[in-house]
Every structure is written in C-alpha cells, then in structure tokens.
Amino acid sequence: MHEASIVQALLDAIDDQLRAQGARSVSAVRVRLGQASGVEADLLAWAWEALREGGPCAGTPLELLPVPVRWSCLRCEVDVPLGGPLRCPSCGGPAALVQGDEIVLDRLVLEVPDV
C-alpha cells in the first residue's frame, strides 16, 4: 500500500545524504517507526527489499526500531492508558500523543571513497 511511497521517500532522503557526503554506497539504514504511525513494519520491510535493488542500497539491510505508543496529559504530566477514553484521569483534559507516530530516518552508514 503506501509503504512503497514511504520507501521511495527513504531512498530519496538517502540520495540527498549520498550526494552531500560524496558517498557511493550505503551499508546500514535505520528507521524509527512508531506503532501508531500508520505504517506497517512488515510491509515497509517488504517494500524495501523490492525497491532498493539496482541502486546504492542494493543488498543493504533496513533496521526498524519500533517506538511504542504513549498518550499523556501534558498539563498533569501523567500517562493516559489505552483502551478507554483518551482523557486525563486526573484533570479530564484531552490526552496528547507524545510518542508513537514517528517515521524517521535516524541512522545511515555510508561508504565514502578514500581520497
């Protein structure tokens, strides 16, 4: 589904870094993926295998770091449990998603030719 377009965006972001660093290939890629991001890790991994071929990421593994969902009340600084209404158990105010919707490229290892 949309995981393919996320992988395309990932490959584009990697290309930007390759150009900036004068690198030719990539030996490691890591993405932080929130469990409430709407992106399925399995599908992302599958799309990566398919779309990385023929480019500087051919054969490069994709490391996915899952980030758990956390809803909190920013005012009371307490976590709001899942499964019930997303309101603060203390003040009744709306909870905020403080973690869990990330789709972030956070690590790359590039191979730069020695000069």
């Binding site: 996320i6 965006a9 990932l10 584009d12 972001a13 870094q17 660093q21 690198a23 030719r24 290939s25 030996s27 490691a28 993405v31 990330e102 789709i103 972030v104 490229l105 956070d106 690590r107 790359l108 290892v109 590039l110 191979e111 730069v112 030719p113 020695d114």
Partner: peptide, 16 residues
C-alpha cells in the same frame, strides 16, 4: 578503499 561514515540523522520521511 572506502571509509565507513556513520551519520546520526533525524529525517522525517513524510517531510517532502
């Protein structure tokens, strides 16, 4: 020879 350059990044993939 190539040199391995590790990069710490914070690129949101939906940013474009």
């Amino acid at each position: 020879d190539t040199e391995k350059v590790p990069l710490k990044l914070e690129v949101k993939l939906l940013s474009a």
